[in-house]
Design a protein around this nucleic acid. Structure first.
Length: 425
RNA sequence: GCGAGCGUAGCCAAGUGGUUAAGGCAGUGGUUUGUGGUACCACCAUUCGCGGGUUCGAGCCCCGUCGUUCGCCCCA
């Protein structure tokens, strides 16, 4: 038997309602904030991610699905995240020439070669937002606010917003030096990974889960103290505006995100109800990325949410929304079955959901299936009804039924809709 | 890449070396060939992920392998 590859999975009908709910909710809120959907390719030239995300990052270093195109010349990579592709498109299509800011959002599959675990897969799905062309602190807060609105609209609880500023390039360089200077004397006591990172990517040491390393990191210099005045002012303004909007946050001095392009604001929204992979939404400002990828000097901020993780949370809260029919059509006998088929189509055209039993089996069997389908009402068509063009309308909850002309049934749409809506309560 | 747990039917499972592999859900047929939800009856794994080994005998023990889950790393 051929199975789905490790780290990929099927989203079956019983689960897909959650996905549709998330997509629909996000789409509504994003649309109200006048974000426009953008759809970009699922694979790109490898160098886009190498330059955009950073060669030293884990994502680029060991997690990308990279292959050579058939011609043998181009190195191609399945996108491991959404921002790089959107920014490439922004530059290539000269969206900056339209002036002002671009408010964009996207959704789709991302790919990273990692060991699967709870809330982590090799093919996973994100919904993300990019607000390109503003360096205003209000942009940071708008982006975060839209994220929290979506999460709130989904009814998710126990979420917390962690935020930090990683400053701009110069700030970070200065901080890196201070941090390395502080850590150097403790080198022997750090865990192995952190020792490696001392030269390669010292900021990430702050994030280590090793006990001893955490203790040492506690007293390390804070990045905030290395920020320039303007960077500090930006961060303070963002925090004040969050407070104005009533959005709670914790400053996490150790929050350093794994992609190189982040500047200034970095944030994560986490849940207590997930396993080790607790981040539901992550993002930040990326003021240097557009220029780095060959576009004009342009500031921007964005985030991405992990759809699988949202689904995990929703599953804890609600039953999967299911599509149950208004009518289940029971029929038997050649003429009756043909009429039932036609009737099902006409009912659909007037706005009902209709399931047609295709079995020709005994009425008893068909009623049993009608029950299981969760239908509100049954329409019964046998030889007798077929002869005089009637149909038996049976309300399944009460068992009440009556014969009615097919033409008449099709004319009482509003009355039926009201009745069905009542019975669905 | 590293560590730990788990693989018995479509799903949930009992079973810890000794004849025929419990049970439940779902499914199919029937009691009931023009009326469902309840009830009752029947059917539904020659086989326990796969390969090898130990043994008179293996779902059960051992080795390998594949899959899966959780964790490390990293991130959504």
């Amino acid at each position: 038997m051929i199975q789905a590859l490790r780290g990929t999975r099927d989203i079956l009908p019983e689960e897909v309602g959650y996905w549709q709910l998330i997509e629909q909710t996000a789409r509504e809120i994003l649309t109200k904030a006048v974000y426009q959907e953008i759809r970009v390719p699922i694979f790109e030239q490898t160098s886009l991610f190498e330059r955009g995300i950073g060669e030293a990052t884990d994502v680029v270093g060991k997690e990308m699905y990279t292959f050579t195109s058939r011609g043998g010349k181009t190195s191609i990579t399945l996108r491991p995240e959404g921002t790089a592709g959107v920014v490439r498109s922004y530059i290539q299509n000269k969206l900056h020439a339209q002036g002002g800011v671009q408010r964009l959002w996207y959704t789709g599959a991302m790919f990273r070669y990692e060991r699967p675990q709870a809330g982590r897969q090799r093919q996973f799905h994100q919904i993300g937002l990019e607000l390109i062309g503003s360096d205003a602190p209000r942009a940071d807060v708008e982006a975060i606010a839209v994220a929290t609105e979506i999460l709130q609209a989904l009814g998710l609880k126990n979420l917390s917003l962690d935020i930090n500023s990683v400053g701009r390039g110069e700030d970070r360089q200065k901080y890196k030096e201070a941090l390395v200077a502080y850590l150097e004397p403790y080198k022997a006591e750090l865990d192995e990974d952190s020792r490696d990172r001392l030269t390669r990517n010292p900021l990430r040491i702050l994030d280590s889960k090793d006990r001893k390393t955490q203790e040492i990191a506690q007293d390390a210099p804070k990045i905030i103290d290395s920020l320039s005045d303007s960077s500090k002012r930006h961060f303070d303004t963002v925090l004040n505006l969050l407070t104005d909007l009533g959005i709670d946050y914790q400053i996490d001095h150790c929050l350093v995100r794994g992609l190189d392009y982040y500047t200034h604001t970095a944030f994560e929204i986490k849940s207590n109800d997930l396993g080790a992979q607790a981040t539901v939404c992550g993002g930040g400002r990326y003021d240097g990325l557009v220029a780095e990828l060959g576009g004009p000097d342009t500031q921007a901020i964005g985030w991405a949410m992990g759809m699988e993780r949202l689904v995990l949370l929703l599953q804890q809260l609600t039953e999967s929304p299911v599509n149950t029919p208004d009518f289940y059509l029971v029929s038997r006998g050649a003429v009756a079955e043909a009429q039932a088929l036609l009737l099902s189509q006409k009912l659909r055209q007037t706005g009902f959901t209709v399931e047609l039993d295709l079995s020709s089996s005994a009425f008893g069997k068909q009623f049993k299936r009608a029950d299981r389908s969760g239908a509100v009402a049954c329409l019964v068509l046998g030889d007798a009804e077929a002869d005089n063009k009637t149909v038996n309308l049976k309300w399944l909850a009460s068992g009440e039924q009556k014969a009615i002309a097919q033409a008449e049934l099709l004319g009482m749409t509003e009355e039926l809709k009201t009745r069905i809506a009542e019975l669905r309560q």
